[in-house]
Amino acid sequence: MIYKGKVHKVGEHIDTDAIIPARFLVTSDPVKLGENCMAGIEPDWVRRVNKGDILVAGRNFGCGSSREHAPIAILGAGMPVVIGHSFARIFYRNSFNMGLPLMEVGDAVDKINDGDELEINAETGVIRDLTNGAEITCPPLPASMAAILASGGLVGYVGERLKQKNRGK
């Protein structure tokens, strides 16, 4: 899978209340949640996003609550992948479960600037900054996460397991 898009960069410790404030959690509809993505940073933050754009974040992105609405809102806003210095652990699980791949790159995230154009090869983990020529290689995913992503998320993955279980009966 190749992703190509414009970077929207956010800072450190962006919490799930910033990604999608609790008052919007009365739905699980990706489109409605996407309309308020990052409304906890500023109300109309999401207007800058075009479909396919790439979110780039600082340390500990997604800290705070367990709301799965956070990765759903990012996907709903049209951003198919997030590159970050590091991710909070519940958000990390949730994102893969929802089919949103995360790329943890540590300090190398500083090489990417807001507004840059990126090209990402999800298989090889190579991120190319087309604006400044920087290249970052992201360590490969644990096999368990890769398997979940390959099924499009945890719903598909567990669905397969349940089918096998029922066949075994």
């Binding site: 367990s66 949730n94 479960n97 567990v158």
Partner: peptide, 26 residues
């Protein structure tokens, strides 16, 4: 638990941790 503060039960010696809704569904 599908709530990040599920970790509360560590106070009585349970291993307790928060997850998202789909992990909880599984």
């Amino acid at each position: 638990g599908a709530d990040s503060h599920t970790c509360t039960y560590g106070g009585i010696g349970a291993f307790a941790t928060g997850m998202g809704s789909t992990d909880i569904a599984a």
